[in-house]
């Protein structure tokens, strides 16, 4: 029982990270109807920003991780937002309105570019991510130890998700995003600046991916150029599982994938870890292609 709760806790923290990444996929898909394959690489860049900036920032604040941690996350979010907008501007915008396949291949190209650029310039070897979350034991009983890391990860992730919900539902640009996902042409005719709102969507998605990267690297402290590949793909599966284009669905899907993957790793075999998400994907697409919350969704972004 204790082991199960422990696994569940790990699963939830991994799942909330997948949820953050999945939100970026689902927002872009909701508006532009294509899978932003390079999203996982934005995540990877976020982890590198954290890796390089964390020591300096921690020094600057005198080793106070309660200030340094959020600052590192904010910095990574800003850098990745810029990167996300650049990707959109350079690679995707010239292809607006072209067949999906062409945009998809371009997105794969962008993703490969980042992976290989970092492999060539930075080097393929994994580096150790510094500790950003103070290590304490919050709860300790005979059969269960709850460390601070999962609590901080889950708390930060849910805080950011709540923030996103606020932006999408209660701000002007959020309303414009929802209008775009509902009908892009009509939104344009109503005087919405489509390019600007699409860019803002990439800002939001990339910022969430960057935050996810810092949290992910705090749990699995190994940073390397290919680290975005599988979290990215699994987060996409999470978005499909929840119903693509649906924000609560992406969060739910992320949690389900994270927990399932952790339980399979813990109780079956670690070698099947990467196959779990894809098996879920094939099953969901065969039996409920709209995803768990997809068909009843009224809130699409």
């Amino acid at each position: 029982m204790g082991e199960f709760l422990q696994q569940l806790m790990n699963g939830l923290s991994l799942g909330s990270i997948y949820a953050l990444i999945a939100l970026g996929y689902t927002m872009v898909y909701g508006i532009l109807r294509f899978i932003n394959f390079a999203h996982g690489e934005v995540f990877m860049v976020g982890a590198f920003v954290g890796l390089w900036s964390a020591p300096a920032i921690a020094d600057f604040f005198g080793g106070n991780l309660f200030i340094a941690g959020p600052v590192v996350i904010l910095l990574a979010m800003v850098v990745c937002s810029i990167l996300g907008v650049l990707n959109e501007r350079i690679a995707y915008r010239p292809l607006r309105g072209k067949p999906t396949i062409i945009v998809l291949i371009t997105a794969i190209g962008v993703s490969l570019f980042y992976q290989n650029f970092f492999q060539s310039v930075v080097g393929p070897e994994p580096r150790r991510f510094p500790d950003l979350i103070p290590q304490t034991r919050v709860l300790e009983t005979d059969y269960l130890i709850v460390g601070s890391t999962p609590l901080v990860v889950i708390g930060t992730a849910f805080g950011l998700m709540w923030l996103l919900r606020f932006v999408v539902l209660h701000t002007k640009v959020g309303t414009a995003m929802r209008a775009l996902s509902f009908n892009l042409q009509a939104a344009r005719l109503m005087g919405i600046n489509v390019d600007r709102v699409v860019a803002f969507t990439f800002v939001l998605g990339s910022a969430l991916a960057a935050a996810a990267a810092i949290l992910f690297a705090s749990i699995y402290p190994s940073v390397h150029p290919l680290m975005g590949l599988f979290p990215g793909l699994k987060a996409f599966v999470a978005a499909v599982l929840g119903g693509i284009g649906n924000l609560p669905g992406a969060a739910l899907g992320g949690l389900i994938i994270g927990v399932t993957e952790t339980l399979v790793t813990g109780y079956v075999s670690a070698t099947y870890r990467d196959a779990v998400a894809f098996t879920i994907l094939i099953l969901i697409l065969l039996f409920r292609p709209t995803g768990l919350l997809g068909s009843t969704a009224t809130e699409k972004v």
Partner: peptide, 28 residues
């Protein structure tokens, strides 16, 4: 067979996932 119900990018992800599943199975 799953491809019958899927189009474009979904199919791409499913086939990608399928390739990875094969790899994992062979590894085991």
């Amino acid at each position: 067979i799953p491809s019958l119900r899927l189009r474009g990018d979904y199919l791409a992800i499913v086939t990608l996932g399928f390739g990875e599943i094969i790899r994992v199975i062979i590894q085991n």
